[in-house]
């Protein structure tokens, strides 16, 4: 069984650009605020039907008889 290792270091000089293709940390799927838009919408819908507060995640988002 091979184990997985991640090694990272700052070494090379002379490159300042953040590339669009960069396998950078920000581009990793784990760094998305909402990994799945449908799941996020369903969670917000559930909370809105049980709690007085809602909103702040963006514009739109429909109303519903449940709240």
């Amino acid at each position: 069984m091979k184990i997985f290792c991640l090694l990272s270091v700052l070494v090379l000089g002379g490159c300042a650009n953040v590339q669009p293709w960069e396998r950078g940390y920000l581009a990793k799927p784990e760094m998305a605020f909402d990994p799945n838009p449908a799941t996020a919408a369903q969670m917000q819908h559930m909370y809105a039907s049980k709690e007085a507060a809602s909103g702040g995640y963006g514009v739109g988002g429909g109303g519903c008889g449940c709240n």
């Binding site: 605020f33 507060a53 702040g56």
Partner: peptide, 23 residues
């Protein structure tokens, strides 16, 4: 007022998320 922070932890290859909302 919603504030969301995502932080990547390279040593663990994991991401931390912290949200706070005042209403």
């Amino acid at each position: 007022w919603l504030t969301r922070w995502k932080h990547y932890v390279p040593a663990l290859g994991a991401a931390l998320g912290l949200d706070y909302r005042y209403y």
